[in-house]
């Protein structure tokens, strides 16, 4: 089964991290994801820009474009990983390791459809 691990965090806190703190978090995440990548179990991962850069399209008969994120909550969706796990427990364990020492939350959502990336990562 493929799972999406969605990273929720208070973006004011994340934005206030120093470069060193930010690097440390990414390095720690890397220690969890590197073995998964080596085992060909890691899908794409992304980090989202702050919600101030977001636009929401509310669909309906007359779709509305709204500036800002979809929901006004204390914690925002700031990024995600796609991982292959045999069980939900495995996915929970990965998320638990990723979040050691952090204060945010991870939402784990099984994937229903997965389209592999066609982007050239080197050009990003």
């Amino acid at each position: 089964m493929l799972y999406a691990i969605l990273c929720y965090h208070d973006e004011d806190v994340v934005n206030a991290w120093t470069q060193a703190e930010d690097d440390a978090v990414l390095a720690k995440r890397g220690r969890v994801t590197d073995p998964l990548a080596a085992a060909a179990r890691l899908g794409p991962a992304a980090r989202l820009m702050p919600t101030t850069a977001a636009v929401t399209v509310r669909s309906g008969a007359d779709p509305v474009v709204i500036d800002g994120p979809f929901a006004e909550t204390k914690e925002q969706l700031l990024g995600f990983y796609v991982v292959e796990c045999a069980t939900l427990d495995d996915a929970v364990e990965i998320a638990r390791k990723m979040g050691v020492g952090e204060t945010g939350a991870f939402e784990i959502r099984p994937l229903k459809l997965y389209l592999p990336s066609t982007l050239d990562a080197a050009a990003r």
Binding site: N15, A16, P50, T51, T52, I66, D67, G68
Partner: peptide, 21 residues
């Protein structure tokens, strides 16, 4: 930059605040 970001959060549809940030 932090204050500009806060302002934009309070007024999310103000293009001049997007421009400022």
């Amino acid at each position: 930059i932090r204050l500009a970001r806060l302002l934009l959060k309070i007024f999310p549809s103000e293009p001049e605040l997007m421009g400022l940030l």
